[in-house]
């Protein structure tokens, strides 16, 4: 393999052309084995009949999708109406993930800009500092966050201590706590791509804009942002998608009072319900929504690039 790669390197720009198939094979096997096959299995399971207490019966059925979209009452024999329960759960999750993404963007963009404008020898240290908290397991970070935020926690003690408030602010077990948790979990995914984009940005463009009497805000809006947009979009996707399926933050910080997409799906497999086809169907619907959102992003990106040329 190594010999083939070395001898094929001279003629074309693709140094490893001859050995490409072999070199890529492990990646392809892993990709197919670990992501394509499970997704296909999920798709198949979502169209099977559920077995009581977990498992599937190999009979084709649309029951899982029917359950998702149609409400037949508590006993399943009322006339079918639109089922809002699961749509509401999806909507809540999308809303939470969006809020966390905006929060990450609001904090992450200035952070990335700050790092990218430091002297070159210091930037690595700043990036390193951003990643330090992420050496600790996500579960532990989320639990620690709860300890910080709770009614008798250090945050409230401090605010009361400096006389800003009299009674503790109730944060734990609210939606805001979930958003904070998601924001904290995924912030580096926002900072790092934006940092990479801003670092490549040619700052003489901003100087040129200033020379042409553009205000600082106009320079940001018309010159910097369009130039670093791919980094921003990548950051937003990297925060939004994992936030959407997350169940640690909603469970620990939000008190698990309301299902999120992640916990709804988990309950179908590990909980009392044991409805594997429904869990698979909910996963497929989530996957479809994410794919559609990504396609819209990609299209807008392509259109914007066309207009730019």
């Amino acid at each position: 393999m190594a010999a083939g790669a070395a001898s094929g390197g001279s003629a074309t720009t693709d140094t490893y052309r001859e050995a490409r198939t072999w070199l890529l094979l492990p990646s392809w096997l892993i990709l197919a084995g670990l992501s394509l096959i499970p997704v296909c299995l999920m798709l198949i399971y979502s169209f099977l009949t559920k077995e009581f207490r977990g498992g599937v019966i190999w009979d084709f059925s649309l029951a899982a999708y029917d359950q998702f979209f149609f409400d037949r009452g508590l006993f399943g024999d009322d006339p079918a109406q639109i089922e809002w329960t699961y749509i509401a759960i999806f909507w809540r999750s999308i809303w939470q993930a969006s809020a966390a993404t905006l929060l990450s963007l609001a904090i992450g963009f200035p952070t990335a800009y700050f790092i990218a404008t430091r002297p070159e020898r210091n930037r690595a240290i700043w990036v390193f500092l951003i990643t330090i908290p992420y050496w600790v397991n996500l579960l532990i970070r989320t639990v620690s966050m709860k300890f910080l935020l709770r009614d008798q926690g250090p945050l409230n003690d401090m605010l009361i201590g400096i006389g800003l408030i009299d009674t503790p602010i109730h944060i734990v077990n609210t939606n805001f706590a979930v958003q904070l948790g998601l924001f904290y979990s995924y912030l580096p995914f926002m900072v790092l791509p934006i940092y990479a984009a801003v670092e490549r940005y040619n700052f003489s463009l901003s100087e040129a804009a200033a020379d042409l009497y553009a205000s600082k805000f106009t320079t940001l809006r018309r010159i910097l942002l369009p130039a670093v947009k791919p980094g921003v979009v990548a950051g937003c996707i990297l925060v939004f998608v994992p936030s959407l399926g997350s169940f640690l933050a909603p469970d620990l910080l939000g008190g698990a009072k309301n299902f999120m997409i992640g916990s709804l799906i988990e309950e179908q497999f590990k909980g009392n319900a044991g409805n594997w086809p429904f869990g698979a169907a909910a996963s497929m619907i989530l996957l479809t929504i994410v794919l559609i959102l990504l396609l819209i992003f990609a299209r807008q990106q392509a259109r914007a690039e066309k207009e730019a040329h």
Partner: peptide, 14 residues
């Protein structure tokens, strides 16, 4: 019967 209880649980947590 369990299906009804599952539905009630979903209603509680929806």
């Amino acid at each position: 019967t369990q299906a009804v209880y599952d539905q009630i649980w979903t209603n509680v947590k929806k």
